[in-house]
Structures are given as structure tokens and as C-alpha cells.
Simulated scan of single mutants.
Amino acid sequence: MRCPFCGHTDTQVKDSRPSEDNAAIRRRRFCPDCGSRFTTFERVQLRELTVVKKNGEKMPFDRDKLTRSLTIALRKRPVDEDRVERIVNSIQRRLETLGESEIPTKVIGEMVMDHLAELDKVAYVRFASVYRNFREAKDFEDFVGKLSDDQSD
């Protein structure tokens, strides 16, 4: 593993243990060249996933990008970081078990929307505003109106 501080390629593992959700191995590493310590996570990857954007562009699935999107939607909301990690794990596992290596962004977006709808309505609306590309206040009103109608049923 390359040291993120100095780039040295021969780092040492000082401690390994399962992560809190047992979905990864957490490793504390030490760089003998610069003396820095850092943490890495090792996860099982069932298959290589490629994300297909609306314009047809293909790119590798980026777990960190998914985490950032959820974190932005949940900013200043009463939700634990562990909960975000569990959602990301759940979405990644579902994508890996779909049987397809190329996943349209729409599928990922809908999975995120489903999780946020159950978790936090404010984050759900925030994410929807970007995902569904709201252009004006009326778009928000319509979306929240449908959300209110769905809850009153």
C-alpha cells in the first residue's frame, strides 16, 4: 500500500480488525520512510461495476461519490455517519447482485431516493432537487405536494 503522505510503496500493517458493521477490514498502517500513520479499509467486491450516465458516458462505480452525495443531502440532519455507511453498503451489494456489470445512473439514483425517503424527508427533498433537476420553486412545491399526498393516504 502506497503512503498517502510521501508516496513510499512499502508500508507496514500495525493493526487489523473488522469495521463496526463487519463489512470491511480496518487496517492501521505505518510508513517506515516518513513515520506517518494512516487507516485503510478492505472490502469484498463481488464484481466490477460500471456506471452508465444519461449521455452514454461510462465510468467506474465510485463508492466515495455515493457516500458524498448522501452526506451532502444529509448535512445538518440528525443521522449518524454509520447509518450512511450502512446505506452505501446496502446499495453497493444490491448493485453487485443485480447480475449486470453496467448500471444506469437512474437505477442508483432511485435506490438512493428509496433509502432517503425512509430515513429523512428533508434529505429526500434535497437529493430529489438535484437528481430530478428542479429548475424553479414550483418544482419544489409540486414534489413536496406529492410527498404530502402520499403520506396522507
Rank of each mutant, 00 (worst) to 15 (best):
E42A: 06
D150C: 05
N22E: 13
D64M: 08
P104C: 06
R68L: 07
H8C: 01
R126S: 10
M59E: 15
R126E: 04
T50G: 02
R28Y: 04
I87T: 01
D64L: 07
P104I: 01
I25P: 01
V52L: 08
L116Y: 02
F41R: 10
K106R: 13
M1H: 07
D114K: 12
T71H: 05
P78Y: 07
D21M: 10
E20W: 04
C34Y: 05
R43E: 11
R26N: 04
V144Y: 11
T71E: 08
Q151N: 13
E42R: 13
D139T: 12
S69G: 15
D150V: 10
I103H: 00
E136V: 13
A137L: 15
E81F: 13
E136F: 07
D120M: 06
S101C: 08
R26A: 08
D150R: 14
S90K: 11
S19P: 04
R83E: 08
L74T: 01
D80C: 04
T39H: 12
T9Q: 09
R77F: 08
A24M: 05
E96P: 02
R86E: 10
R75D: 12
V122Y: 05
C6V: 05
K58C: 13
P18M: 12
R37C: 11
Q92R: 03
R132W: 03
K76N: 13
L95Y: 01
L70D: 00
F38P: 01
S148N: 14
E48I: 12
R93D: 09
T50Q: 04
C6A: 10
T50M: 09
N55W: 02
R75E: 14
G109E: 03
